[in-house]
């Protein structure tokens, strides 16, 4: 397997008028093609910062980020941020419009994605008419529309209620596996991390440093919902739980 991404000694400092905050330090990690990776850590430790830096929304302070030459990034946020004045199809075409690759062919691909993943009847609906889980699925397809191979998901399910959350994480897992994507996901939900990913990176409290990395080896690797019932699941859960410094 080849590396999609190599990160060496990544460092990020935030500046404000009165403060200088070290958010991430000494973060080194390689990502292989097709891997699903979760980053967990105490809240406010700087998990999301790593994704923001990776996709270029923020500049790194120091360190090295090396992408494989044909890596294309897709970024998905916690809020679906669908535009209320665009219908579902037009929302999904946003990325193509922006990088000026919208043509009949790419449009057909997006329509196919929407059809494949159960949104056929909603192509011309407006976001207001969709449930939270469906909106999140639309947000994923909007991210997939530009055909990225590396997906960065920033707490993609935390705005949803528990039921939809389980269902949609199953959905999204299947979509990403089927489309053979590589994924890095930031979450505060340990169970979600173990059930969806191949590797879990545990970060320390701020400034975020890598505390431990777990290769998740389950007896019967299956979909996220089934993975939660696996024998080894609780083993990892306990381990990671202990690794995270919780402050109450």
């Amino acid at each position: 397997m080849k590396n999609v991404l190599e990160i060496k000694n990544l460092k990020k400092i935030y500046h404000t008028k009165t403060h200088e905050t070290l958010a991430v330090e000494d973060f080194s990690f390689d990502v292989n093609d097709g891997e699903f990776i979760a980053i967990v850590g105490p809240s406010g430790c700087g998990k999301s910062t790593i994704l923001s830096v990776l996709c270029g929304l923020e500049e790194k302070s120091d360190g090295e980020i090396k992408f494989n030459s044909n890596t294309k990034i897709g970024y998905m946020l916690q809020q679906d941020s669908l535009f209320e004045w665009r219908n579902i199809l037009d929302n999904c075409l946003l990325g193509l419009e922006i990088n000026k690759t919208l043509n009949e062919e790419s449009k057909m691909r997006v329509i196919k994605l929407l059809t494949t993943y159960g949104l056929k009847d909603f192509i011309y609906s407006y976001p207001d008419n969709l449930s939270g889980g469906m909106r999140q699925r639309v947000a994923l397809i909007r991210t997939l529309a530009t055909n990225p191979n590396l997906l960065l998901l920033d707490e993609p399910f935390s705005a949803l209620d528990y039921q939809s959350r389980l269902a949609i994480s199953d959905d999204i897992y299947n979509i990403l596996r089927k489309e053979k994507k590589t994924m890095i996901m930031v979450t505060h939900d340990i169970a979600e991390a173990i059930s969806m990913c191949d590797k879990v990176i545990v970060l320390s409290d701020r400034p975020a440093r890598i505390k431990s990395i777990y290769n998740i080896e389950l007896e019967n690797k299956s979909t996220p919902i089934n993975n939660r019932k696996d024998k080894n699941f609780s083993y990892y859960y306990d381990k990671i739980w202990k690794d995270i410094d919780f402050h109450v």
Binding site: C55, G56, L57, Y75, L77, Q78, Q79, S81, F83, W85, L94, G95, E97, I98, N99, T146
Partner: peptide, 29 residues
């Protein structure tokens, strides 16, 4: 305009021109 929508546009690589005409202006109608 919602910060997350701006973040989304930026993550898709939108120029300032695209940001204005695809998000800011229609959002402010």
């Amino acid at each position: 305009v919602n910060e997350n929508k701006i973040k989304l546009m930026k993550s898709l690589g939108a120029s300032k021109y695209q940001l204005f005409f695809k998000l800011i202006l229609p959002n402010s109608l």
